[in-house]
Amino acid sequence: MSEQVTFDNSISLDHIGRIYQMIGNIPFFAEKKARINSIEVLPGGLTNSNYKVTVNNVAYAVRIAGPGTEEYLNRPAEKHAATLMAELNINAPVIWYDEKTGCQVCLYIHGKTLHIPDMQEEKYIKKAAQVFKKYHQSGKEFISRFDLLKETYSYKNLLIQKNFAFYDGAELFEQKIEEVREALEKNPPKLAPCHNDPLCENWLDDEKNFYLIDWEYCGMNDPMFDLAALCLEAELNEEQEKLLLTEYFGGELTEKQFGSLIINKFLCDALWSYWAVLQIATGKPHEEYWPYGLNRFNRAYALINDGSLDRALAAYNK
């Protein structure tokens, strides 16, 4: 099985061994008398290690889940969502999934992985809006709930328990999170199946389909969160944001719809800023995660400082 195998020298022997063990133990490959031809590193991913593994001359995407991720990620829920989305031809076909660890094997999609400049193009903004619309309105039910505020408070409380400091300005930040919570409790959004982490590198274009992969943070949520997260990840300007929303809603935007986008942008950055600091508190590199979280914290804080969040809450509460 190891004859003439090529692999990147940067891959650890531990991960090469785990990939061999994984492929060797999966019935799908055992039935085919699987032989690994090559192993390549796939870029991206803050928490997991991803590889393109060619088996019997067919390419697969193999994920080795990051240690400890099972503590805060619902792996059975991801398997359920990833399978449902594959049926809609939105996610890559799932070959095997380990519900305990989150390790998985999917069919590799031969296409273009998007990056920020790509997603800022009009054609991809429109394509993303249609993919969002397709699964948000699919009538599918995910088995998990992605409760933004609950997740945020959970990360915050874990930091308190670990006696780990957050960024300067946390008091006003937390006050505004409370104001958002009150607004959403008074007027709760209708929930839909959501991806919740649609960064540009999770979008793939093979010129036949437009895929959204990596459903780790899936769950029933306010669908506007997916749109807000993409606006942030793709660094869309206001004109591009309005194009995304117009394509998604199919008409003129209301103040409340745009206000909901601003609220969800604030919540998205708040969530991932707490998440980033929690990664450091659990042993991840400070130099990698602190600046990432600080950037998101500062961007959310800017919505407080320039009055955007207050205006959005006023529009939402009308």
Score class of each variant (00 low, 15 high):
Met1Ala: 14
Thr6Arg: 14
Thr6Ile: 02
Ser10His: 09
Ser12Val: 00
Ser12Ala: 09
Leu13Phe: 11
His15Pro: 03
Gly17Val: 01
Gln21Met: 07
Ile23Phe: 09
Gly24Phe: 11
Gly24Val: 08
Phe28Tyr: 12
Lys33Ala: 09
Ile36Met: 13
Ile39Gln: 02
Ile39Leu: 00
Glu40His: 05
Val41Gly: 00
Leu46Thr: 10
Asn48Gly: 03
Tyr51Phe: 12
Tyr60Ile: 11
Ala65Pro: 10
Pro67Met: 03
Tyr72Glu: 12
Tyr72Gln: 13
Leu73Trp: 13
Leu73Phe: 15
Arg75Met: 08
Ala81Leu: 03
Leu84Val: 13
Glu87His: 15
Asn89Pro: 02
Asn91Gly: 15
Trp96Asn: 11
Trp96Leu: 11
Glu99Arg: 15
Gly102Cys: 08
Cys103Asp: 15
His110Ile: 14
His110Asn: 15
His110Ser: 15
Gly111Glu: 04
Thr113Ala: 06
Met119Leu: 06
Glu121Met: 07
Glu121Ile: 00
Lys126Ala: 05
Ala128Leu: 08
Ala129Ile: 05
Tyr135Asn: 01
His136Pro: 04
Gln137Leu: 09
Glu141Tyr: 12
Ile143His: 04
Lys150Phe: 08
Ser154Thr: 13
Gly169Asn: 12
Leu172Ala: 11
Leu172Pro: 08
Leu172Glu: 14
Glu174Cys: 11
Lys176Asn: 02
Arg181Met: 07
Asn187Arg: 14
Asn187Ser: 13
Pro189Met: 09
Asp197Phe: 05
Asn202Gly: 09
Asn202Gln: 10
Asn209Ser: 10
Asp214Tyr: 08
Gly219Tyr: 03
Asp222Cys: 08
Ala228Val: 06
Asn237Lys: 05
Glu238Cys: 12
Glu241Phe: 05
Thr246Leu: 04
Thr246Cys: 04
Glu247Met: 07
Tyr248Glu: 02
Glu252Pro: 07
Leu253Tyr: 01
Thr254Ser: 14
Phe258Met: 10
Phe258Arg: 13
Ser260Trp: 14
Asn264Lys: 15
Trp272Ala: 05
Tyr289Arg: 06
Gly293Phe: 05
Asn295Met: 07
Phe297Leu: 11
Asn298Val: 09
Ala300Cys: 09
Asp310Gln: 15
Ala315Lys: 13
